[in-house]
Every structure is written in C-alpha cells, then in structure tokens.
Design a protein around this nucleic acid. Sequence first.
DNA 1: ATGAAAGCGCTAACAA
DNA 2: TTGTTAGCGCTTTCAT
Lengths: 333, 333
Amino acid sequence: MVSIKDVAQLAGVSVSTVSRVISGKIPVSDETATRVREAIRELDFHPNLLAAGLRSKSGNLIGLIVPDILNESFALISRFTEENAEQKGFTLIVGNTNEDPTREERFIRDLIRRHVDGIILLRVSHESRAFEIIERSKVPAVVVDRTIESEEAPSVVMDNYRAGEMVAEHLISLGHTRFACVTGPMNIAIVRERYMGFQETIEKNGMALEQECVIEGDFKYESGIEAIRRLVSHRERFTCLWAHNDLMAVGAMNELRRRKIPVPEAVSVVGIDNINIARMVTPGLTTIAQPFGEMCQAAVELILRMRDGEELRGSSVSFQPRLVVRETTARPL
Amino acid sequence: MVSIKDVAQLAGVSVSTVSRVISGKIPVSDETATRVREAIRELDFHPNLLAAGLRSKSGNLIGLIVPDILNESFALISRFTEENAEQKGFTLIVGNTNEDPTREERFIRDLIRRHVDGIILLRVSHESRAFEIIERSKVPAVVVDRTIESEEAPSVVMDNYRAGEMVAEHLISLGHTRFACVTGPMNIAIVRERYMGFQETIEKNGMALEQECVIEGDFKYESGIEAIRRLVSHRERFTCLWAHNDLMAVGAMNELRRRKIPVPEAVSVVGIDNINIARMVTPGLTTIAQPFGEMCQAAVELILRMRDGEELRGSSVSFQPRLVVRETTARPL
DNA sequence: ATGAAAGCGCTAACAA
DNA sequence: TTGTTAGCGCTTTCAT
C-alpha cells in the first residue's frame, strides 16, 4: 500500500505538505501543490481513512438507522441519503434494525467506534435508548419521519396533518360522505397527526368520521386485508377508505375485489407513500407522495451544521405532501 | 472517550493485557481476565475501531456492492448479508451503485481505504473495472448472482438453467404447448442460462419455443407491458409466458388484463424472484424463489475463507431454485 | 502470563 | 509557505 510518505518522497516535500494539498484548507504554493498532485496521480495514492479518522476524529462517515430496508420507502430514503452524503464527501453506513432495539444499539455503538460524523435515525420509537448512547458520545443526530416531541434531536418530517387534510379534501370534492380509515399504530405520533388532519377536515365540512369505520393497522399488507374483513363483516357503510400506507391500501383493494366490491365504483381507496406498487396495481392507486429527496437533503445538512457547532435541538423542518391522483378514487355511486 | 489505557489503569494491568483479554486469542490468567472484564464493564469501554483497524489492518468490515437497492431482491440480499456478517462479528457497508461504474469504483476504493476484510459484488457487469482495483489491493472478493466466466473471483449463484427447466416442466405438465418468454438483457450470463433451460426442456418434450415469442426485456416493469404489446400486435399465439423476473411478469399481467385477456384462463404467467408484489397482485403470481438466505451465507463464508488464505478463485457455489405455485398458472383452454 | 515499547498512516500544533 | 514532531488508540513483537 502506498502511503503519504511515498508521495512526499516522490514530490520532494514533507508529509505535512502533502496532507495540506489533500485537505485544500491550508495555503500551499501553486508550484509545490502541482508537484504533489502529480506524485499522487503517479502513485495512485488514496489516503488511509482509518489513519486520517483516528487522528482527526472524523471517520468521514454518516450513519443511517432504518427499521426495515425491505420497506421500499426506507430503501428510497437510504438511497437519497447516500447520494446527499456522498455529495458532501461522506460515506453512508446503513444499519437495518428489523425493529430490534438490540440491533439498533449495536449499530449506533459501532458507528461511534468508527468516529461517525453524524447519525440519522428513521422513525425511531420513543422507547428507544438510542439517544442516551448518542448523547454521551456527542455525535450529532437527526430524526427523520418522526414528529418531535422531545428535545433529543432536530427532526425532519413531512406535514402529516396536511396529508390527512389533502386526502379528505380530495374525497370530499368527489362527493363522498361516508369515510373509513385504516391507520398505522396509534402510538406513533405521525399516525395520530395523519388521523387528526383527516378527521378534522371531514368535521370542518359538516360530516363525521364514524369510530366504527376506523381500524388500527400495523402498516403491513395483511392488515389492509383484515381491515376490510372487519368493516364488511360489521356491515359498516363507507364509500371511501384511506389507508395510512400503500401496502395496507393494496391489501384493502385486493380484499375488496375478492368480495366483488368494485374499486373505485363502490369504494374509493387512497394510500400514502407512492411506492412502486402503487402504479403497478390495477386500477392504479391514488396516494400521497412524500418529498423524500428534499427530506434527506435537509437531514444531511442538519447533521453537518450540528457538527460545525450549531445548536439545533428542538428545531424541526417540515415538508409538504403531494397528492398523486390515479384510478382508485372516483365519485360515489 | 474512555480508552484502553483507562481500563488498564483501573484493572492495574498493562494495555497489552487488556488487548489480549478483548481479543481472547492469547492466554491470560483467569484472575486478571476477570479483573479486566470488570473494568471494561465499569467504564463501559468499547474499543476504537479505527485505531484497531489501523494497527491490525482489518477494518472489521465487509462491503456489499449492489446495482439498485430499490430492487426488492437486492434489498433482501443486503439484509441477509448483513445478518451473516454481523454474526461473524463484521459490520456491513452497502454501496448502491445505481449501475454507475464511477460510483462502483468510488465505493470499492472507499472500502479499501477503510481496510475492508472482503467485498461481495452483486451481479457486476463483465465490463466492470471493479476487479482490477480489488486485485491490486489483495482484498478477498466474491461475486453473487453472476455466473463465473472468468478467474476473477469465486461466485455464488442459483442454478439458473434449472430454474428455466422447472418453469418449462411446470407449464408442460399443465398441458401447455405454445410458449412465450420475456427475458432479461441477453448479455447477462444468467439470463442466457435461464433461457437455455427453458428452451431445451421444451424441445426435449418434442415442442418448440418460437423465436417470435421471445422478447428481450430489461428487468423493468415497463418492459413486461411492452412485451405483451409486441406479442399481441404481431398476433403471436401463446398460452403461457415466462418473464425473467416478477416485475416484468406483473407488467405483462396488467397489460393482458387491460386487453381483456384473462390470466390464467387465456394465458398463464410465471415470474422469478418471489418478491412481495408476487403475492399482492391478483391473481397471485406463480414464480421461482431464489434461496437468498443460503446464498448470502455462502458468500460471507467464502470471504472469510479467502481472508484466511484459501485460494478459491475459479470455484463456484450453486443453489437450487424452488417453484412457488400460485394462481397465474392453469391448464390451457 | 505479563509488560514495555514500537509503530500502523495520518493530522495538527509548533517552529522556522 | 514549509518542515519537524508529537500523538490519535490500538495491536504486536520482543523481552522478561
């Protein structure tokens, strides 16, 4: 392995000069800089990141903790985050916890042991011990897709209340009067916000979201199926349904079809996420798209600002949802 | 940050003794070992991985290079690989290239600069410069999901010829005689093998796979749609179709439905991959499942064996496909 | 079985 | 602007 010493020797300078040329932050005469760069090129030198990180206390690393990489939304977020991190010169390590707190802790500890420059946490639960560990290490942390309810870290979210509003407005504008909803787990703040936006908009328009028509799901495909089973077997009357993600929406659609209840003729269905499946099912699913690209960019920028000493805890960046109308929503019969 | 020095001091031993206790590979008296472990626990000490890696030349790291993390199969592979790596005490870094050779090179280089212990490459193209770089660095490398055609690295694959055979056998056993196929890009070896297994089995049974009924796709959803458009507009006659992945199979199903051609009554459809969408579409997609869990385990084990000095280039580990019968295959009318 | 000491490859403080 | 030097926190000889 060629080291900075070899470069210094070939260029006829000291190792610190080479280091200065590489970092670009300390003035070096044009002439020597050129000679050094020449030597770097010639030897195909790439600085050892372990040595650099050990000394500078920066691993050139950003960590992303996700609950489930098989979830397409999280895969998308990890892709966007990586692209933003790389653009700023950082490598991204993605830790897939599978919702296991032990794994979560292990990942965070591993990152700290590699001198990570910042950690982005995706939708961590409020029971998570993550912040205790992070706090002690003084590593900057940002939470994405979880509404801030504490002073632990700055957060980046979509305006989930507004998403609920938009769905309700869309359905109301089509003439619907009987609403149903499959929510995510109600102990998650963003779920409650989605629900509130939906419900309050319906009420603001002089109608009601009947409690019997609200089913708590778990974001999984099967829970969309189960929701329809319960709604239908209880003979609830509804002409439209909002599921708190696309997976449950597709589950609901399939169960409706199985029961010969046509979508959207008898029941309109709306999801949220705009994953690929949404355009692959027939009819195409009307849904809410989250601006993940901007959210990930914001998250990386927050990390970097914190690293530079800014105190950002308690702050929160919010982005607007976007309604994607496809074929599962129509006027009620 | 607490360091090995603090532990040594508290336990009343030298740093080398602490290091020995941690590694567990060098004999230490039970008594001192206990004292050291006590101190480690008390101080909540976690060794700095940059320092350890710099000295020992092992970053405790395995790298995985994937073409597209949004592809559910690759997300699954990254999850399995991570689980196997962690079980062996390694952290996994996933590099998502988006099929961009520049990004691929950047990731590999970054891994090497972190003293990576091995690199697993997923379905790299034969034009890739990856191996040149890896070769020079002497880092163990394994290729997954690409048939070996060179002596660059050992490979782990599913038996793709057998997959083609299994699909053909299934369709033939149902009584089909007119076959169609949407392949992946023919410059990929595994695609040609799938095709050969399919075609030769059909011929072995006294029938033919007409060239007009074979469409080259690109593994994307849209290319399944396009394949049906071409087959139907050319008035090809076929009662069943095999797509070289589930995404194209679903695209084909949707286009068939749009044209009022019932699946499986008029046309049976088979995919390959067994991604989640396969069970979410209606009717459920019959497909081939790849044993990703075992494949990832094999890949990690190969990496570790190479690291321990075994020469494995040219070798190849192969796994058997599994047919998952759902509702898109039936007897022809 | 244990300790002392060198050194992995870099950065940063200090000197010139 | 440049060079010299210390040292980041570990592992690994080499002694004992």
